[in-house]
Design a binder for these strands. Structure first.
Lengths: 336, 336
DNA sequence: ATATACAGCGCAAACGTTTGCACCTAAATT
DNA sequence: AATTTAGGTGCAAACGTTTGCGCTGTATAT
């Protein structure tokens, strides 16, 4: 007990050979005799030698660590992405260090700087809701650190991205609402400067157009939390011709809508249909269970991590790839 | 662009001074003249010098990184703990690298070994559901790495722990059920070798005893997921004298019970009351909203991280502290 | 003029590894 | 017998920092 980690030098001293020989023996270098190798390996095992990754990283000027910048860990979608990232990184022997921006621009730039200082091998990033300046990400690229964006990307920067198929998911959801009889469909969105908002809005609009349903701008609201939804929905429900369908930017928001709709003594889905986005933990807890767009966070995380690792390992050839993770509709009880 | 990070040596070369002088200048060492300091700082700022943390860690044999081993990131309780950990670590300039065991013993030991190899400054760990051997954690301690357990602790190892007040939370919840008229209360638990299960069971049992309610072993089940709850609850509801109250080990499980209860055409809370544990995302999405024991994952994470950092910084004096995070009841619609 | 003090800076070692090169010995080739 | 070959090993530098110690030069005190 209390024993501190043993080093290559220690092994060398104990066996009366040089550190270089020990190093080579451990790596099974052909120059080293079998007897030496055996002796070294035996000793290493016995005293539980573990290479010092710090020294290794320094020597190789290559850190087997990737950084992840994520808005908030606690959201199901992000934590499942994180889970996917960790899975792949782990398989490839990489550590993942996490930073959360808390949807805060200043913290996001601090995070990027910390990651650069740590000399991580690569960075996976998802924009905070309020980020509109991207210089800190350019800094990452300028520092020769591979960068790939996921989910909330920015198009001002040349790099790889992996996104959910927001457009198609939104289009399909709204089309489903229309096909099951909805005539007036509201859309609750995150701030519109975000690509995901734009894309989903486009999906929403195009679905309406396809079925020649007029667009009513008053039905498009910026609202992406349960609390906000509970506040603004009653007003909308009160209007002379209230909507008979809601398409929400996430499940939390959808559950807020459900709450307000029930409070207004309207029936789900007979009077109003509701579609969410994410398929998080709460979707099945709702009553009726929430119809939603499954967006495969875990898959997204795995894809993003793979892409990054390929870049780190130099397997990609200068091209920026734009991976799109499919979505699919999960029809449950809040739609007809 | 393409510029790689500048080093202390580079600054020295550019300014015709030695690396040691640069180092001292940057640290505002009194031995260095103001003019030199100014020159160094100016150059450092201009060329965006950032210390190489790898070299620093190696030199100081101190890694400003802590490792966290967590069963599954995607669960709300764990991700909020993680969030709290990240918060504190960030404030203190520490990176946090995460490993998930996926509730798998083998992965857990791999994780511990990886963290030892990385020479993290400290480890925060939460046992996987199936861990019954603790040697790998002893290895961490033997490697002189501070270790603190959170939530799912093991009592076989001498170290700091921070846990939720499981006993009191359970006691209070069950007492509330009794006080609001429940006569037969079922308890759905995680595997009973876990301390949290034992403690909550004790709280459950003591509350029953306090009110002289006989214990019926058939009402105590191992079940901690929504899916399992949906399967086993109908049988229990079918029995001649069905329970009129449920105390679930987590909110997922509680939501499964709700589903089964509604399916059996029983009313919540008039016919049966339900109490969860966690206050996760889904609690408010339930209908009626779930009464549950709030367990403050974020606080727990912050506490655990603080404790660990104190140990790392040598602020604690050899004593093992046992921090207990309070719980409190959140009464919503699933109880009277 | 000599001794003392101190300000300002550089040398070199150290943290643990890897790796190009040189070195030595013994065997194999001429 | 002289030379080449190859097998096995060690030296030393490098990655970027920090830090104890020693060195220089100038200014102050005797």
């Amino acid at each position: 007990m209390g024993k501190t980690q043993i080093t290559i030098k220690d092994i060398g001293r104990a066996l009366n050979i040089s550190p270089s020989t020990v190093s080579r023996a451990l790596k099974n270098h052909p120059d080293i005799s079998q007897v030496t190798k055996d002796a070294v390996n035996k000793y290493a095992k016995e005293f539980n030698y573990k290479p010092n990754t710090l020294a290794l990283s320094l020597r190789m000027s290559k850190n087997n660590t990737i950084g992840v910048i994520v808005p908030e860990i606690i959201h199901y979608f992000f934590s499942s992405i994180l889970s996917g990232i960790e899975q792949i990184a782990n398989e490839e022997g990489f550590n993942v260090i996490i930073c959360q921006s808390n949807e805060n621009y200043e913290r996001e730039v601090k995070n990027t700087q910390a990651l650069i200082a740590t000399r991580v091998s690569g960075v996976l990033a998802c924009l905070s809701k309020h980020t509109i300046n991207y210089d800190h990400f350019q800094d990452i690229i300028d520092s020769d650190i591979p960068l790939v964006f996921f989910d909330r990307i920015c198009i001002g920067i040349n790099t790889d991205r992996v996104v959910v198929d927001d457009y198609s998911g939104a289009f399909a959801a709204v089309e489903y609402l229309i096909q099951t009889g909805c005539k007036r469909i509201a859309f609750y969105s995150s701030p519109l400067h975000l690509e995901i908002s734009k894309n989903r809005k486009n999906g929403y609009l195009d679905a309406l157009r396809k079925y020649s349903i007029p667009v009513d701008e008053s039905l498009i609201r910026v609202c992406d939390t349960r609390e906000e939804a509970i506040i603004i929905t009653p007003q909308i429900l009160d209007s002379p011709n209230r909507p008979d369908g809601f398409f929400a930017i996430n499940d939390h928001c959808a559950s807020g809508i459900m709450y307000a709709v029930k409070l207004a003594k309207l029936r789900i889905p007979e009077d109003v249909s509701i579609f969410g986005f994410s398929d998080g933990e709460l979707a099945k807890a709702c009553d009726p269970m929430l119809s939603t767009v499954e967006q495969h966070g875990y898959e997204m995380g795995k894809n993003a991590a793979k892409l990054l690792l390929d870049k780190i390992n130099g397997k990609t050839h200068g091209q920026y790839t734009n991976k799109i993770v499919r979505t699919n509709l999960i029809i449950r009880g809040t739609t007809k």
